[in-house]
């Protein structure tokens, strides 16, 4: 049971990440200018959707076995893709990045995803049914990485191999940075929660005194209430 509980967050987060990738690729497919690229992104999105489906299934198989409280904690809701930061609230990557950077991002992240799946593979065992699925997903990621590399070499022939390494290094660093930031945020959250609660308690005591009767609209013509008021 303990093992399953510790696995839940891994599958939960991975499923989020794969679904977010699918959405990013679908957005790229709709945002591109050439039919050929649209096909590439389309096929990539299709793969990522399939990966997400696999991880959701693995999550679900574990969710059945844990306590109700834990199961409710790991129930997926689509808006959590934004809340958890898998999709930026500023927009899709294709809308916010230059095409070259976007491809570099795909090129690097597919490889990083593959290495993180290696950890999951160790967790479930490579000879299990789940292991076989994960192995096939890893192959997909490698293929996506290769396609991004091919695109790079074709469209940016002047690009030197060391520049690709630099891109990869930069993305890896940024990824590690994001993880560190997230871990720090969680740590800070733990430390500061009592303070937040204290402040909320004080603010709550003040809010108690609020008289909201003014907001009552019974008998009023709603069209005559000031349209400038946020109250």
């Amino acid at each position: 049971m303990k093992n399953i509980q510790s696995e839940l967050p891994i599958f939960y987060e991975t499923a989020h990440a794969e679904l977010a990738s699918a959405l990013e690729m679908l957005a790229a497919c709709k945002g591109t200018d050439t039919p050929k690229q649209a096909l590439g992104y389309f096929m990539h999105a299709k793969d990522e959707y399939m990966h997400a489906k696999c991880f959701f299934k693995m999550l679900s198989q574990r969710g059945i076995k844990v306590s109700l409280e834990k199961a409710r904690e790991f129930r997926f809701t689509p808006p959590s893709l934004i809340i958890k930061g898998y999709i930026s609230n500023k927009g899709f990557l294709i809308d916010t990045m230059k095409l070259k950077d976007f491809i570099a991002f795909v090129y690097t992240n597919e490889l990083l995803a593959k290495s993180s799946f290696e950890n999951i593979l160790n967790l479930v065992g490579s000879d299990t049914d789940e292991g076989k699925i994960i192995s096939s997903i890893m192959m997909d990621e490698l293929r996506h990485h290769g396609m991004a590399k091919k695109y790079f070499l074709k469209n940016y022939p002047a690009l030197q191999p060391w520049q690709l390494v630099m891109y990869r290094f930069r993305e890896t660093l940024q990824n590690k940075g994001r993880k560190l930031y997230d871990a720090n945020l969680k740590f800070l959250d733990k430390i500061l929660t009592p303070l937040y609660k204290g402040m909320a308690f004080v603010a709550g005591n003040m809010a108690r005194k609020l008289n909201l009767n003014e907001f009552k609209r019974e008998g009023k013509n709603l069209m005559e209430i000031s349209s400038k008021s946020i109250l």
Binding site: G204, A207, R208, L210, L212, S229, L231
Partner: peptide, 15 residues
Amino acid sequence: RPLSAFLHIVKEASL
């Protein structure tokens, strides 16, 4: 009306 929505939830929670 955003502030109204916000305050109603806060007021109820504060009780």
